[in-house]
Design a protein around this nucleic acid. Structure first.
Lengths: 341, 341
DNA sequence: CTGAAAGCGCTTACAG
DNA sequence: CTGAAAGCGCTTACAG
């Protein structure tokens, strides 16, 4: 049996209350009483039972983190950002991903119950496909939640997201301004994906801005997968575009691959750009020009918001933080010649 | 205030004990009593406080996971493997990484305290640089721990690791047998890294097996970094090796990069192979031949061991599970011609 | 089949 | 400065 506060009190000849006080550095304790207690604490290598502390103090020092998957290129960055903040205050992180189940709603119930069970003090959630009704419920929880990846403008809940529309727009501007391309194909992701839609919006909006007629025949769907993109690649090439904006790197990769198979040399290939900055994006040939979301900062910012709410800021107005998204210019847009050609 | 078991008991006109019984499906409860209680439970959407349950039952349904970093290519796979098992029994995962602090021993104290504080029921730890004295302490804990990545043969503790020596040996065999190379350079990782040493052992051992004299001048140190390898690349090339075995992919990448800079064409380049199968390994040119550790299975196996210990198997003999490691043959060893050349 | 009571291991007013 | 007591929200023998 492990030693408890009661045993320590007995050994030190004081009450449990006093032991608790020296352990927590709270209230007044005579210096020699403190030392008497600490001696025993050290001798037995006493560590308070977190479950009991949490129950009494009505907290857990744990934040739940919910991620779509573990395979994506950047979720680890989010984790790192969060951990860097949590560790400052000695908070722990409970991790749950959507991959653990086929049924997304099951995971949603599960993460909601983390809060209800009081297993965590707050939740950071990356679940862009969650519908508004559900998020609305989370917003009503008595514990802080922050949603990552999208805004839910109509719901009073904290959020931190990268501006995908603007990211897409910035990429378009690069294509339009720096390269003077006008005939730009867009390869969409799945129709039900929030991010896919945002990126498409950026494309369309920028065309309008530049007075270029939106041409539906220049928009293809690749479903965010490499295979999907490879499937439509040939039709894309037949449209003879000056540039191809794949709305994620996977699809850009598929298109580049297909282009090579079809015998295009690097110089004959139209400009092909992506979105995400996958870990391999800089290593493919040509090195991929793409858009990078600040994943580390998203995690970090979310953690800061949660910690702030926990230390009394829970009454303040929900905030929608939008982080800037960068275009990473490499070779595939035509900016640099590959030394590997 | 949230509703508690006491309030439910009051409302249902029964005792707390009875409510607890229906909630846990334990002991006998009259059917209509059960329904009376469940009606109130549902009405108030009651969820038991996990902290109280854990305190009474003396458990937490949480497993701690400690990882070196979040940036590595494969830790996410480990997480996925673990989660797949834990979720079957409704266990949670507390994640901690070494990146949260400069001081590794601080993290070690921290993960040990997860156990002492009873914040978790068991621990899965990836910490190949932990010294034996420390691991010995962990082995004495009253809660199950399993170490990932290395064996600690002298310490009675569970472990799951990929066989790096054999992985390295298999790669050597491919180079020796399939290609007939004899003059093979080895690029080492940091001298204090366990995995670096294992991989080196596999190289050396295989040479001996094949009756090839070990030549120290063919061994270089790249410190597991791309920059480190780029630094020694030129000296490596001057040695005119038939093949270069970089003991991780980062270093292989650096060497390939440098080779290109120095004007080697793909066909002039010596064979260059790596270790790890980084996410980009298949995308570089030439596609990298490398060794892949079964990260998902490592995670999965570790989780299974922990769950088994928790359900009564804690008395059984510690097990050292060693998982097979595969050579992934691509282009850089000379096996296939790149279509991108 | 059900309830009263003790217990899990701490914290925190309240008195003194 | 310190202690007795109640409380956090459950579970679990023990009786009946």
């Amino acid at each position: 049996m492990r030693i408890t506060i009661a045993k320590i009190a007995e050994l030190a000849g004081v009450s449990k209350a006093t032991v608790s006080r020296v352990l927590n550095n709270s209230g007044y304790v005579a210096e020699n009483t403190r030392e008497k207690v600490m001696k025993i604490v050290r001798e037995f290598n006493f560590v308070p039972d977190a479950r009991a502390v949490n129950l009494s103090k009505s907290m857990t020092r744990t934040i739940g983190l919910v991620l779509p998957s573990t395979s994506g290129p950047f979720y680890m960055e989010v984790i790192r950002g969060i951990e860097d903040i949590l560790s400052i205050d000695g908070y722990y992180m409970l991790l749950m991903t959507f991959e653990a189940s086929r049924d997304k709603n099951e995971i949603r119930r599960k993460y909601r119950s983390l809060l209800e069970e009081k297993r965590v003090d707050g939740l950071i959630i990356f679940d862009p496909e969650a519908d508004e009704a559900f998020v609305q419920q989370m917003a009503k929880a008595k514990k802080p939640c922050v949603y990552l990846g999208r805004e839910y403008l109509k719901i009073p809940i904290d959020s931190v997201s990268a501006d995908n529309v603007t990211g897409s727009r910035l990429m378009m501007l690069h294509l339009l301004e720096a390269h003077g391309f006008k005939k730009i194909v867009f390869v969409r992701g799945p129709l039900d994906s929030y991010h896919a839609l945002e990126r498409f919006k950026g494309y369309r909006k920028t065309l309008t801005e530049w007075g270029i007629q939106y041409d539906e025949s220049l928009v293809f769907c690749g479903n965010f997968t490499r295979e999907g993109a490879e499937m439509v690649a040939q039709s894309i090439f037949s449209a003879k575009p000056e540039a191809i904006f794949a709305s994620n790197d996977e699809m850009a990769l598929g298109i580049i691959h297909r282009a090579k198979q079809l015998g295009y040399s690097l110089s004959e290939m139209p400009a092909i750009v992506g979105f995400d900055d996958a870990p391999w994006a800089e290593h493919i040939n040509p090195a991929l020009t793409t858009v990078r979301q600040p994943m580390y900062d998203i995690g970090r910012t979310a953690a800061k918001i949660i910690m702030d709410r926990l230390s009394g800021g829970s009454h303040r107005t929900p905030m929608k933080v939008k982080l800037h998204t960068n275009v990473i210019i490499r070779e595939s847009c035509g900016c640099y010649k590959s030394i590997f050609e």
